[in-house]
Every structure is written in structure tokens, then in C-alpha cells.
Design a protein around this nucleic acid. Structure first.
Lengths: 248, 248
DNA sequence: ACATTTTTTGACGCTTCGTCATATTATATG
DNA sequence: CATATAATATGACGAAGCGTCAAAAAATGT
């Protein structure tokens, strides 16, 4: 029995490792050569397994891309959890979520694009239900973190009790604002030519204005916004932030 | 000379008509059967011209889809211009832009999806520079309308002069909020299951909160928001609004 | 050592895009 | 009107990618 168990688990480990290898390879390919370059044949060649074997792991190319997206969301969840545990007021913690979201996508600009590719119905309809379900679960988890902070804010009085019924609206407001802004940022619309400042700055200003609109204490004009941004950034990303600065 | 001129213009008219025919056909196909069903062969068969002829009009499938997107944006420009000329305060006129944007996409949910498809690099890189340029021009035009209203607000004192330097940030804030919200709405994320109310309602509330944050007069708590929404809706869309209500 | 089950393989069929030599139609000229 | 020339339309074809499946190889069991 123990022999059976170990062989089984060794096989399973091998399967998992190979799956990781395939995903790593696909992601590298994606980052270096773009979506169109990534084909099942090329992945197969790169990992030195046949195409059939790849298809034993993933039902379709779209299924594989969906798995990559799940990884991205897991990374984001880590960032959100750091933000949740940030040592500060509820407003600071909630701001940390937004900043984490912005900066994550600044550091990994392609991830959001891939997620958005997957939102497209034409692509989505080719993903297996199983994978879609996995992704949905992750999305629920990440939403919960945001909702919890808003609830905390109401419980401790930073946000007026009358907003209890608006919790989800507030989360949705910030979410949509960030999501939209970051997508616009990478869509080759020449924002700069249209007179727009760098997106991360605008986002920071806009979400402060938005939260001020809800009177979420402490208001932004009683705070050194710039300093706060710096503090939260380095708390969330530590070293990576230097990389970002060097790039910009 | 006059003979030459008329034959040339007749030919040109024929070309333009055929181009419209192709676009109409593609759009119908898209709405009825989805992106994957739309192929160049099927379009050719439906319009009763050969594939080669289709390629005389459009450099690629993506080029054709880009032309469809340009049409969508033109429609949106019409809506925005109606909003610009809405008879009311600057805040009402600016709100009208947001409402117009929301409702247009409520009436034509697929249009935004197609535009977003095109923002994807993998697709975008196959569109001819010429078409991309055409779309960019339209996007600039639509942005200008929004910017102008904010400028009007500052000029007439509804918005404090200190925000002169933030005009583009304000426009970007509303734009990203709406863009993100509407995309999230159609991305099959089960927003309702997550406890979110219908997106158009949330958007209306959120953009009011956002504009209140900038102290754009008159503030929303001195207004009957619900009534205002109704008024603007029917001013912009008239009859179409009934269709919408019947659907919902 | 052999039988049975599991896994891997890559050639193959299918679909779609975009091209281009050929056929067709339109225009110009004698 | 006939013929030459230019413009346009056609659809067979090549290329590329996805996903399948019968056959081969490897692993497991006896």
C-alpha cells in the first residue's frame, strides 16, 4: 500500500511539475514574443513533449491561457492580502489595495491584457467550464478582501453607517476605475498626446477624490498624499519598487 | 470631361455602397452568431462577392472589424454631441455624457466588446496603420467634447478655478470608471452573485460621488438624482429608452 | 518473461486567412 | 462596331494553426 501510494504520488508530482513547466514556457513565450507567436506546436517543441501530451494537460489553447490568468490572479491576491494587513487606518488599507493593483500592473503590464483577452466571449467560450470555475473562485476571493476593508471602515466609524448598503457599490467604483484606467493605459490610445498625465498618478488622485466624496476619514486634504503613496508602495512591493523606478 | 467625372463618381458610389453592404453584413453576423462565426468566406458568400473583392476593401479581417468599431465610435460621438447640447447646468451636461455612454452600451452591448477586442495587441497588430489612424482621430474627437464641458464648468464657476490643471484628470476619471464598469459588466463575472447591483445604477451613483468630490456645483444631494437621470435619458435617447425598459 | 494498462506520439483532417494567376468586365480607340 | 487596353473580380491554392486518434512506447502487474 505504501509502495502504491508513493508511486502514485510520484507520478502526480511529475504531472504537476510538467504542468508548471508548460505554463512557465508559455508565459515566457507570451512575454517575449506576444500572443500570436504562442502556438501549441511551439510550446510542445520548447518543452520537448509532443502536442498530444500538452493536450492531456489543457483542453485547448484558451484553457492554457486561462490557467496563466489564474496564476496572475493568485499573485494579485497576495498583494491584496499584504494591503489588507497594512498597518494603518482603514482608508490607508483600502488605498493600499488600489495602489497594489496599479503597481502590480505596472510591473507586469501583460498580465492584465491576457486577463482581458480571456474576458472576450470569442475566447471565453473555448475555455473548459472547470477552468472558468477556478477563475471565478479566485475572483470572488479577491473581491472579498476589498469588501472586508470597507466593512471594517464602517464598523470603526471611519465611514458613515449610512453607507452600509453601499459597500459593494464603493468597491465596484474603485474596481471599475482602476480596471478601466489600466486598460486604457495599455491600449495604445496616446493618452499623453491627449494631454493626460501618467495613469498611476491620475488614478491615485481620482480614487482619493472618490473616497473623499464618501467622506471616508481621514480625508485626503488632511494627509500628505504623496508621502502616503510612497509608504504604501514600499510596504507592498519593497524591492520591486526600485526596479520600477529605474524603468520609469 | 463631365462624362468622365460622372462615371468616376458612379463607380466611387458603387464602391462605397458595397463597402457599407459588407460592413452591414458583418455586423449582423457578429450580432447574431458571435465573433468566431464571422469569417471572410462567410461574409463573401453572404454579400455574393468573392473573397478577393472583400480584400479589395479591407486589408484583413481585423481591418474590417476596426471599421465596424469606427462606426460605433461615430454613433457615440452623436450621443456625446447631444449631451453637450443638453439644456442644463454644466454638471447636468457632463452627467449626460456619462449617462449617454452607459445607455448606449446597454442598448448595444456587443459594440464595446468589439472595441475591446481591437485594443488587444494580438489583434491590433494586424490592423492597417490607416485604419488605426482613423480610429485615433475619432477617439480624439470624442475626448474633446468631454474636455470642453469641464472647461465650460470652470469658466462659469460651477467648478473651482483651482481645477484648471486637473481637467484631463477629471475626464480620465469618469472615462475610466465608465469604461471599466461596462467591461466588467459584460465579462461574465457574476457581479450579481457577488452582491453588486445593476451596473448602470452603480455608475450613476459613483460618478455623482466622484463629481461631488470635486465640488462640481450643484452637488448631488441638492438634486433629485433619480429624476435627473430620467430626464437626461429621454432627452438623449427618446424612443430607444422604451425598448430598453421593455428588455429589462 | 509475458500480458495488460497507461501514457506518449506525431501524422492527419479540418478550418481559416490571405494571395495571385487567370477570367471577366469596363473603358478607350480606330 | 470591333478591337486593344486597363481595371476589376474570382476562387483555387498555400500556409499556419488547432485538435484528434490510431499506433507505438513505457509502465505496471502477474
Amino acid at each position: 500500500m505504501s509502495v502504491l501510494a508513493t508511486t502514485l504520488s510520484r507520478k502526480q508530482r511529475e504531472l504537476i511539475n510538467r504542468e508548471e513547466l508548460i505554463l512557465d514556457t508559455a508565459q515566457t513565450m507570451l512575454n517575449e514574443h506576444g500572443y500570436n507567436y504562442v502556438t501549441m506546436d511551439r510550446i510542445a517543441e520548447a518543452v520537448e513533449y509532443s502536442k498530444g501530451t500538452i493536450y492531456n494537460h489543457f483542453a485547448s489553447k484558451e484553457d492554457l491561457v486561462c490557467s496563466l490568468c489564474c496564476r496572475f490572479i493568485k499573485n494579485l491576491i497576495d498583494v491584496f492580502e499584504k494591503a489588507y494587513n497594512y498597518d494603518g487606518s482603514t482608508r490607508e488599507r483600502y488605498s493600499a489595495i488600489g495602489i497594489g493593483y496599479s503597481l502590480y500592473h505596472q510591473l507586469h503590464p501583460l498580465d492584465l491584457q491576457n486577463i482581458q483577452t480571456l474576458k472576450n466571449n470569442a475566447v471565453r467560450e473555448k475555455v473548459s467550464d472547470e477552468k472558468l470555475c477556478e477563475m471565478e473562485t479566485l475572483e470572488q476571493k479577491i473581491t472579498k478582501i476589498s469588501l472586508n476593508i470597507v466593512q471594517d471602515a464602517i464598523d470603526c466609524g471611519d465611514l458613515d453607517k449610512k453607507h452600509q448598503e453601499n459597500i459593494s457599490t464603493i468597491v465596484f467604483g474603485c474596481w471599475s476605475m482602476h480596471y478601466g484606467a489600466l486598460l486604457l493605459d495599455q491600449s495604445d490610445i496616446p493618452l499623453h498626446a491627449l494631454g493626460f498625465s501618467p495613469v498611476v498618478n491620475m488614478l491615485w488622485k481620482n480614487s482619493n477624490t472618490y473616497l473623499d466624496g464618501y467622506q471616508w476619514q481621514p480625508l485626503s486634504d488632511s494627509t500628505d498624499s504623496k508621502l502616503l503613496f510612497e509608504q504604501i508602495s514600499s510596504a507592498l512591493f519593497g524591492n520591486e519598487i526600485n526596479t520600477l523606478k529605474r524603468t520609469a
